[in-house]
Design a protein around this nucleic acid. Structure first.
Length: 255
DNA sequence: ATGACGCCACACTGGCGA
């Protein structure tokens, strides 16, 4: 039985609810959509999705961050925050659909707030890595999907798109990503496309999309059993060309 | 190529985050 789930940093759900509605109509096989940067409180999340019979769960806050799940089938929310990550920002929501646990995450960017802001990014990685170890010990079938704000290798960004000191590419950031990956997870995109540049984000500035000056920072990390089931992974690049587009595009995983 | 975007508030412009 095929299961399809997707990640999309939407950069304000209230500004782009229509884009999500249209995307869901064009992608009827997507069972669960994981959104990041909804930029609103729970009660402000657009009602159109629930009204259309979809299942919705949110972990929101005022103005910044915020994550949400939109399902075609019911799911059970297992937590509204990442255990062990004490910072008061809405960056994680996790649910079980059928027998698969999906952790939907929005990792701190790490370029603001000085060294303290960067430390928050590493703290999120530490907590997520602990949760991965716990799930692996339970032999649970799971995926951690979302905006990691990390370009794992030099092949995951356009040449000169970022400075070497940017928090998205710092060696310490990449080491934290590898520590998580090397607990035994699989980077879904690289499992099926081991080479080449495949971006999920293009900055609004400096005509980045037109120049294809992008980054691969949205990732789906899969548990061993889920990785074995992986049949397809797509980056919906066309979404970036739409009017009023988010700066990120959907990443779609089929197992 | 620094030419954008969305949010909020001491609000109609500027600061912040990304």
């Amino acid at each position: 039985m095929a299961f399809t789930f997707a990640s999309w940093n939407i950069n304000s759900i209230r500004a782009r609810a229509h884009l999500v509605q249209e995307w869901l109509e064009r992608n009827p096989s997507c069972d669960l959509l994981c959104l990041q940067e909804i930029k609103c409180e729970d009660h402000q999340f657009p009602a159109v999705f629930a009204e259309a019979g979809l299942h919705v769960a949110t972990s929101g806050q005022k103005a910044y961050n915020g994550v949400a799940l939109i399902g075609r089938r019911p799911f059970e929310v297992t937590t509204h925050n990442l255990p062990g990550f004490e910072h008061p920002s809405a960056r994680y929501i996790e649910a079980k659909m059928d027998d698969v646990t999906i952790g939907n995450l929005y990792l701190p960017n790490g370029n603001s707030g000085g060294e303290e802001g960067y430390a928050t990014k590493l703290a999120f990685f530490d907590a997520l890595t602990l949760r991965a170890r716990q799930f692996l010990a339970e032999e649970r079938e799971f995926a951690f999907i979302g905006d990691y704000n990390v370009c794992p290798t030099d092949e995951d960004l356009a040449p000169n798109a970022l400075s070497a000191t940017d928090a998205l590419v710092r060696p310490q950031t990449r080491a934290a990503f590898r520590r998580l990956l090397w607990t035994g997870l699989t980077d879904g995109l690289r499992a099926l496309r081991p080479e080449g540049r495949h971006y999920t984000f293009w900055d609004y500035q400096a005509a980045a999309f037109q120049r294809n000056s992008g980054l691969r920072i949205d990732h789906a990390l899969l548990s061993p059993r889920l990785a074995q089931r992986l049949t397809d992974i797509q980056i919906d690049r066309d979404e970036r060309a739409r009017e009023k587009a988010s700066d990120h595009v959907p990443l779609i995983v089929t197992v």
